[in-house]
Design a protein around this nucleic acid. Structure first.
Lengths: 193, 193
DNA sequence: CTAACTTTGTGATTCAAATGAATAAGTTGA
DNA sequence: TCAACTTATTCATTTGAATCACAAAGTTAG
């Protein structure tokens, strides 16, 4: 436990052992069974979580009852509803474990303390959020310009592993297409080879 | 000049006058005429710009030649292609002045220096990027779940001023719909009142 | 001032993907 | 172990928005 967290942080910022020991004290280990929720719509996102093991999805449900997936989070990634975590407003998102998962949770007060006591973490989170912004901007532009097939093709190139672990109808909910369309796209691609 | 920058920074982080004086030395004032480009596709984004005056758009052109607008930037906002600025890779975006504009430019080396000498700026940019990520995530989810009319209605609620300054076909390119569809949506909304 | 260009609005037609419906295979748990 | 649920596929039909085409009003530069 904590090895992956340690490793991921040190890939981005240098950190003394002492600082990491302090960091560790702020996290709360938590296990989730498949289909358990880290966050449900209407609740406040009390924690930001680092994923040690497992796979989660962050999704919202629109007025027609259709689910839309914001992101999948596997080992080494962070997950929360940033807006709710920062403002204490109720979240519009659900965060659900798709596999049994092991998480490290940090509360808002602990997170503030971490940023205050170890200012290098301002840089760490700035870079993390920056990278997230870049991929989200790209996904947004792709959503506006690409066909269903192009979106799927790009996804299998970028995250081939994710598709092995996630059911197809959730991949469709991530791409913003119906499961039927995804099924058709896949069979078309397959027939061309 | 610099008053707006000063004000916007101090809304988010406290800063000594000395630190702001240093900060000022790192920026290069630049005027753009309407239709001039700050960045063109294929070039590296050498600068991040703070908008003192005017309105710009950041857009990309897809393989069919259709323009898609990532963002509009008016007074008090920052603009650049973050990815290109950080990696020195050629940009896929164009940044164009929609009105005569006054900018404050900062290069990557100066930006690094600013972060190094005044670490509070790590926090400033972290918060800035964080807010940008939140609105981009919302826009992405809206793109996946909303109809053309819902997207437009939300936009006029959120940025009513922007619509006064930007031609309709660019609003359409921002929403990811055609100018014809936008025209129809507008007349439908108007006829309902 | 006016010709060229930009911007907005409407109509007819087309198209990609959604919807609705049915089936079958795979998985889960009592 | 077998019923209940989940998942993936394939069909016919519908639909929201794109595309094509044109007109008219507004703006700009020489």
């Amino acid at each position: 436990m904590y090895e992956l967290l340690n490793q991921r942080i040190r890939e981005i910022i240098p950190l003394t052992d002492e600082a990491f020991e302090f960091c560790k004290t702020l996290f709360l280990p938590k296990k989730l069974r498949k289909r358990q929720y880290l966050l449900q719509e209407g609740d406040v996102s009390k924690y930001t979580a680092f994923v040690e093991k497992g796979m989660l999805r962050t999704y919202s449900v629109d007025e027609k009852g259709i689910e839309h997936i914001l992101q999948f989070s596997s080992e080494g990634w962070w997950v929360s509803d940033l807006y709710s975590f920062l403002t204490n407003e109720p979240s519009r998102f659900n965060i659900e474990a798709l596999e049994d998962a092991e998480l490290l949770l940090i509360t808002r007060p602990s997170w503030d303390l971490l940023l205050e006591k170890v200012p290098a973490f301002e840089r760490y989170f700035r870079i993390l959020i920056q990278n997230n912004l870049i991929v989200t901007q790209r996904r947004l532009m792709g959503t506006l310009s690409e066909t269903a097939e192009q979106k799927y093709s790009k996804l299998i190139k970028t995250y081939p592993d994710c598709l092995q672990r996630v059911p197809q109808h959730m991949v469709a909910a991530y791409l913003g297409i119906t499961p039927e369309t995804l099924s058709r796209v896949r069979s078309q691609i397959a027939s061309r080879e």
